[in-house]
Amino acid sequence: MSEWIVRQKIRIPFHYTTGRALTRFLTGLAECRLWATRCGECARVYVPPRSFCGRCWREITEWRELPAEGELMSYTVRPADPPLILGLIRLDGADTALVHRLGEVKLEELERVVRVRAVWREDRTGSILDIAYFAPAR
């Protein structure tokens, strides 16, 4: 028996409130600066920053600026032309890792990449995409 399918779309616009900590982070990105928060109890440094440490159940008020460079923890490749390479990047001094795109790297070289640095866009708007991608660092 052949299928009888009804095709439909769901198309809804959203606007997410980022909160204080992420607002500072996003505003910082427009200035090529990376802001993190540090929990006063467990000393974890969170990027993206958050205003509250869920592990210690306490507010976080301490800010740290981190270098735009870190360690590539892991990566994955989505086949496309050109391929989309996503990396899990731990910025120096952070305890958490960021997901972002990787660039300036050939697929066959990925296995050897250890250190990466942020490559900033010219036209920054206060978005995570103000970092165009992370590229291999020497």
Partner: peptide
């Protein structure tokens, strides 16, 4: 509540 995100 534009001062806070959902977690906050």
């Amino acid at each position: 509540r534009l001062d806070v995100n959902i977690a906050e």
